Amino acid sequence: MSETSPSLFDPFRLGAMTLPNRVVMAPLTRNRAGEGFVPSPLAAKYYGLRAEAGLLITEASQISQQGQGYQDTPGIYTDAQVEGWKKVTDAVHAKGGHIVIQLWHVGRVSHVSLQPNGGAPVAPSAIVANTKTYVNNGFAETSQPRALELSEIPGIVADYRRAAANAIKAGFDGVEIHGANGYLIDQFLKDGSNTRTDQYGGSIENRARFLLEVVDAITAEIGAGRTGLRLSPVSPANGVSDSNPQALFNHVVEELEKRHLLYIHVVEGATGGPRDVAPDFSFEELRKRFSGPWMVNNGYDLDLAQRAVGEGKADLVAFGKPFISNPDLVERLRRGAPLNEVDRDTLYGGGAKGYVDYPTLADAAA
């Protein structure tokens, strides 16, 4: 890196936003939504405390009741949910921050207790997810899904579009489509979870069709300049796999290049786990196919993040769990200060403890 190389702490132009730095808060499920799956009143404080990040990406938020897979996660499909999120965006914007909401449909990673009328979760194919979900204050095996009928798919695409419109009503600067981690879009993409024989299965082009229909619907509603997307090409999260991920995601990114999205956000390796689960996969091959802003995630520390930005391998770096326990993570990284440890007992569910009470450097100095 040269003296003129960009730094993690340099401003960055992202769509209509000028971010004060290139540190992004990754989406982090916290299971604290209230009645009606409305964001907790504490959510405004939680996100507001982290507004110094260049960009905040909210916890994944379901686009419909059918799209929910875990207890007490927030939605973005009712008026009450929109009003709840408005308090969050107001708090972040009051501090000069920028925030987008992650739009989520979990597909098969759900439980009948969360589904409309206790029905089966939906998926591209009726293959059970090899994973667990969080319901009734504990972890449980996911329920047997049913394969979506061809006639149902346009309705789900429309749900994404309405959710994006609601996000703008709620004051968000944009949305991030959750196309990663073994949820519905990822289930369509990967042949380990998609064995359909119609126009949404079989070839790479067919398996990418649902994702691209969702992208096109959302960008038609709110504009490509307010639409980001998260992908996890090789992550085995929630039991997904693909026989040829390089060819699949090369095609996906080539298609996304035509659509001029706000950014692509890539989970490198196994979500929340090893970065080297697929040593033959080339993330550089994806990067060179997309001329827009490129965000990376998974296992980044200060040194790795600085190198990624300085060497042009990424424009933005998303940090996950460090942001939970360090609301002032940007300042801590800038100073090389020690980080607070995460209290794992308070990650999912609960109230203020482990949510809005982690100390900042300013607290320690007071």
Rank of each mutant, 00 (worst) to 15 (best):
D10K: 04
G179W: 10
E59D: 09
N250I: 05
R13H: 14
F9C: 09
K132D: 09
P124K: 08
I324T: 12
G351W: 07
V92M: 10
W294M: 08
V38M: 04
E268M: 12
G97K: 03
F249H: 14
Q144F: 01
A123T: 05
P11S: 15
G174S: 07
P6F: 10
R334C: 02
K45G: 11
L329K: 08
K45W: 00
E83Y: 01
F290S: 12
E141C: 00
Y358E: 13
L184D: 12
D159R: 05
S40H: 06
E221R: 11
N194I: 11
A318S: 15
V38D: 06
P11R: 08
D90N: 12
L302D: 02
K95M: 02
G15D: 13
F319Y: 14
A120K: 15
Q306P: 01
R162D: 07
R161I: 03
F37E: 09
Y77M: 07
P20W: 03
Y263E: 05
G228C: 12
I153E: 01
L212V: 11
D191H: 02
V317F: 13
G107K: 12
K313N: 15
H111G: 07
A53M: 11
A129M: 03
T195R: 14
E257D: 13
N21A: 08
G299M: 01
K353L: 10
N244H: 15
A53D: 00
Q66G: 13
A318E: 04
G97E: 02
R161D: 05
L302N: 02
S64G: 06
G15I: 14
P327H: 12
L49W: 06
G67H: 03
T29D: 06
D280L: 11
D357T: 08
D186F: 01
S110I: 07
F281A: 04
N166T: 02
V112N: 12
G179D: 10
N298D: 05
M17N: 09
L347C: 01
Y77H: 15
R161T: 13
I76Y: 02
G54D: 01
Q71H: 10
A224R: 11
L150R: 12
G118A: 09
S203H: 06
S143R: 06
P279N: 03
P327T: 12
G119W: 02
E268F: 01
P236C: 13
N117I: 00
S232F: 00
G174I: 07
R196V: 05
Y47L: 02
H251W: 14
G155F: 01
T346A: 15
D280P: 02
T197A: 14
P154D: 10
A270W: 03
R307S: 09
A352H: 06
W294R: 07
G202C: 02
L8N: 07
G69F: 11
Q115Y: 11
Y77F: 15
